Computed example of a mutant assay.
Amino acid sequence: MSLTIGTIFTSQGGIIVENPRLLALMEIPVITFYTINLGVGFAVGGVVLSLALVPPDGEGL
């Protein structure tokens, strides 16, 4: 996702600078993407810890 956004700015930077509303339109899906990924990461981490696949104290790693 970050690579895609960087590519958009590289190829269409002039248009984005001329029309700042485009940044607001892009902001919603970007924030949603990272929020969902953060939530999934915490959920998976919680499941792994609850299954005792990783010791909570970190020993034995």
Rank of each mutant, 00 (worst) to 15 (best):
M1C: 10
M1D: 12
M1V: 12
S2A: 15
L3T: 15
L3D: 15
T4G: 13
T4V: 15
T4F: 14
T4W: 13
I5E: 10
G6V: 03
T7I: 13
I8M: 06
I8D: 02
I8Y: 03
I8F: 06
F9L: 11
F9H: 07
F9Q: 06
T10M: 08
T10E: 12
Q12K: 08
G13I: 00
I15L: 14
I15K: 08
I15D: 10
I15A: 12
I16F: 06
V17F: 05
V17G: 01
V17M: 08
E18S: 10
E18Q: 12
N19K: 05
N19I: 03
P20Q: 02
P20V: 01
P20H: 01
P20Y: 02
R21H: 09
L22T: 01
L22M: 05
L22V: 05
L22H: 00
L23A: 06
A24E: 07
A24F: 09
A24H: 03
L25D: 14
L25K: 06
M26R: 00
M26N: 00
M26W: 00
M26D: 00
M26G: 05
M26C: 00
M26Y: 04
I28S: 07
I28T: 10
P29L: 01
I31D: 07
I31H: 05
I31W: 06
I31G: 05
T32Y: 09
T32C: 05
F33I: 04
F33P: 01
F33V: 03
Y34G: 01
Y34K: 02
Y34A: 04
Y34C: 01
T35K: 03
T35S: 13
I36M: 06
N37L: 13
N37E: 12
L38V: 14
L38D: 13
G39A: 07
G39Q: 02
V40L: 13
G41N: 06
G41F: 05
G41M: 05
A43G: 08
V44I: 15
G45D: 12
G45Y: 06
G46E: 11
G46C: 02
V47M: 11
V47R: 09
V48W: 04
V48R: 02
V48Q: 02
L49W: 08
L49I: 07
L49E: 13
L53A: 12
V54H: 02
V54D: 05
V54Q: 08
V54I: 15
P55D: 13
D57F: 10
G58S: 04
G58A: 04
G58L: 05
G58H: 03
G58E: 06
G60H: 05
